[in-house]
């Protein structure tokens, strides 16, 4: 039981991270029906940007995080403008192949720049509150909440979960309460009609990429805090997050959040059963959802798009 609670908490935190990434996939898919394969790589670059800002430029963590978000937003918009926009009217598979090309290129670019080895934020660069420990002599718990069974829940993980929830709520408000959110929903509904109503669709799509990428960057930095930074992280975490987006119903933002949590928990408990198959659970869920209920948990079943 104790173990169960610990794993549940771990799963929730991982799920929060997946949800942040999944939103990026689902927002872009909702508007231009493109699986943005490169999104995982943007997430990975988010982690590396923050890492470089902290280690090379010596910026404090709380400055590096927003700057990394901004850089990733720019990267996302750049990818859209350079690679996807010219293919707007091309067959959808062309855009998908382009997305895979970008993913391949960015992943190996990162490998060239930062080498394939694993990096992590040096301890002195992390905010003090994120360094949790149990004092060996006194048994005092530092910067963490005690969990049953002697385990601890670091403040870092609490922060990640809270941040994910806050950002999700913020995103939800943005989409339902602001003008740009309304424009995004209009574009998702019918791009041509939105365009005719005077909405600058290209701008809206760019904003979508920017928001999705910035959230991906947050997730990247959080993973950097919890685990390690490496060029393949975008691929592995990206696929799991994509599975989350599919599970929630691709194009559906609430679905992405719930899907992220479910995949996170499934992965954590799955790794308990068989650690070698850690990644396989996400793949299985993804395939089953597509075969059984392609619209996902929350998606409306739509007529086939050509």
């Amino acid at each position: 039981m104790d173990q169960f609670i610990v794993q549940l908490v771990n799963g929730l935190v991982l799920g929060g991270i997946y949800a942040l990434i999944a939103v990026g996939y689902t927002m872009v898919y909702g508007i231009i029906q493109l699986i943005n394969f490169a999104h995982g790589e943007i997430f990975m670059f988010g982690a590396y940007f923050a890492f470089v800002l902290v280690t090379v430029f010596g910026l404090p963590f709380w400055v590096a995080l927003p700057v990394s978000m901004l850089l990733c937003a720019l990267l996302g918009v750049l990818i859209d403008v350079v690679a996807y926009r010219p293919l707007r009217n091309a067959p959808r598979l062309s855009a998908l192949i382009t997305a895979i090309g970008i993913s391949l290129a960015l992943q190996n670019l990162a490998r060239l720049i930062w080498s394939a080895s694993q990096q992590s934020f040096p301890d002195e660069s992390k905010p003090k509150i994120f360094i949790s420990d149990i004092d060996v002599q006194t048994g005092a718990i530092i910067n963490a909440i005690p969990l049953p069974g002697g385990a601890i829940l670091p403040y870092r993980d609490v922060f990640i979960l809270l941040l994910a929830v806050v950002l999700m709520i913020g995103l939800n408000r943005l989409i339902y309460l602001t003008k740009i959110g309304k424009a995004m929903r209009a574009c998702a509904e019918n791009q041509t009609a939105a365009n005719l109503m005077g909405i600058n669709t290209n701008m809206v799509i760019s904003v979508t990429f920017a928001i999705g990428s910035a959230l991906g960057a947050v997730a990247g930095v959080m993973v950097g805090l919890r685990e390690v930074i490496e060029p393949t992280m975008g691929y592995y975490k990206g696929v799991a997050a994509f599975a989350a987006a599919v599970l929630g119903g691709i194009g559906n933002i609430t679905g992405a959040m719930v899907g992220g949590i479910v995949i996170g928990i499934a992965e954590t408990f799955g790794a308990d059963i068989h650690s070698g198959y850690r990644l396989a659970f996400a793949y299985v869920i993804m395939i089953l959802v597509i075969l059984i209920r392609p619209s996902g948990l929350f998606g409306k079943s739509t007529s086939k798009r050509a």
Binding site: S94, A95, I97, G101, L104, A105, Q107, N108, L112
Partner: peptide, 23 residues
């Protein structure tokens, strides 16, 4: 040898360029 990974970078760029200019 440390640039061995660069070939995948090039393959990625090939995919992008082909799709853009000569689908």
């Amino acid at each position: 040898s440390e640039f061995g990974g660069a070939r995948y970078l090039i393959f990625g760029v090939i995919l992008i360029v082909i799709m853009r200019f000569r689908p």
